[in-house]
Design a protein around this nucleic acid. Structure first.
Lengths: 267, 267
DNA sequence: CAGTGGTCTAGACCACTGG
DNA sequence: CAGTGGTCTAGACCACTGC
């Protein structure tokens, strides 16, 4: 069972680094075995071999498949779990992380109510204001690594908590991976938008960067968030990435911070 | 050398969990060996057995000292390194992390210039506006886990980059651990305030939480940051913790975001 | 009870640093 | 060259889950 030849269908064997006889090598490009294994697992995740929420093969299975010891697979999985790409559950298995789980539902949304914990206000209400196709402007195409003029989907929505509008968001998505996304599908879907992206478009958001500023509410902000013109708002520009650091979403959020605040932990 | 009795001066031996014969135990309180080792190392860090910037004993030495295998020590150190309490350097040793290092100089300050990278504006200029002793108000004492009316040190300063005032900060510190801190010592010290805390008061900031809001500049903000009254500013309230999640600093920062932005990464 | 992840060990060897 | 952290393996056993 250990090394039957039929296992040769999987991706390339890890390379040995034992033959490091090169002397004048500026960049030895030494890569530990477990990093190579990690790369192979990442590739399978990206290619959708295992979908969000599903279990991946057991450590022993992966060890046999990659012809390495269980400990090496373990270290690769450890890192992927630390990056929130995988989720380990003792006694059950290792699962592909998903935005559809209750516990990590709002992992990317760092705005919380001043008093009480998130969810104490009841479920979030999502109102799609508009959703249309457009040509990427210069800044949008740069953020999404597209060519200027490429087609993008643009959406605007308001999030309300406890009946109060709190967040206004403008969202840009590259049109190609999200073919078929309409205002109706957005409006009808209950749950986090990133969960919809996973199930409907096989796009999993893995990491995000945010640039935060303080701005004054314009007329548009004031009307949609029901605040006075000039009210200070948090401007949160987010670029979300899928596997391989590929940018997949630009989102400009405007947060009211009279009843909520952006919560951040620095380690 | 392996188990000479004189090594019995150190903290308690790790306990074996093999005798788990208790059946009706609601909370088995099972704690892996490496977690116990981690706790012992943490204790030594807190007690100052190894100071910031110094090397801790090698993995082998610690393994002998705690009577466990090197791999177990390794896993404990791995976690402490992941939490930025320790810093591993291959071939050299494992070091107690410090705020005095160039690379992690501004780990807690997430405001960066819109263009260019941090440091492109030259060194930060720190101007102490005031520093005095005071009684803790209700909110300050709550944040610092003090009793209302306890003595605190309060400081106000302005940080400027490239000659422009960008950050106004009000800082509250419990008086006891920072005995002897004066405006002069703050003003004369070149370098990050947290580095001073380490070297002068043996207080190491390990973790912080921030609550961020958008506000309008008051007259004080306007005067010290040289902006117009009512300019939107980022309000950043930070509580910084030492080892054991002990709160050690309350800091209210007011950031100009016309030339800088708060940068955050979500994993 | 079998299968999964989690812990712990012991040993070998590699990569990196500095004297 | 010795000493450090880093990798990899193999095996034993433990904790947890679900059938």
């Amino acid at each position: 069972m250990q090394t039957t030849p039929e296992s040769s269908t999987e991706s390339s064997q890890p390379q040995t680094n034992a033959a490091t006889s090169n002397t004048a090598n500026v960049t030895p490009a030494f890569s530990p075995l477990y990093q190579q294994i990690k790369g192979l697992i990442l590739g399978s995740l990206r290619d959708g071999e295992w979908k969000p929420g599903e279990a991946i093969p057991s450590e022993m299975d992966l060890a046999l498949r990659f012809r390495v010891s269980q400990g090496t697979v373990r270290k690769a999985i450890d890192e992927l779990a630390a990056e929130n790409l995988l989720l380990r559950r003792q006694g059950k298995g290792t699962f592909v992380a998903t935005h559809a789980e209750q516990q990590v539902q709002f992992r990317f949304l760092k705005l919380v109510p001043d008093s009480g914990t998130r969810g104490s206000e009841g479920p979030a209400q999502r109102d799609i204001i508009e959703c249309r196709r457009a040509r990427a402007t210069a800044d949008v195409s740069r953020a999404l690594a597209l060519r200027s003029g490429d087609t993008v989907l643009q959406a605007r929505r308001v999030l309300s908590f406890g009946g109060m509008p709190v967040i206004l968001e403008d969202i840009w998505l590259p049109a190609a991976p999200f073919k078929g996304l309409t205002a109706e599908r957005l409006a009808n879907y209950q749950g986090p938008m990133y969960a919809l992206f996973e199930t409907e478009f096989n796009v999993r958001m893995v990491r995000a960067e945010e640039k935060i500023r303080a701005i004054s509410a314009t007329e548009i902000h004031a009307a949609l968030l029901k605040v006075a013109l000039g009210t200070p708002l948090l401007s949160v520009e987010r670029i979300a990435y899928t596997y391989q650091d590929e940018p997949m979403e630009l989102r400009r959020g405007y947060y009211r911070t009279d009843t909520h605040h952006y919560h951040n932990v620095i380690n």
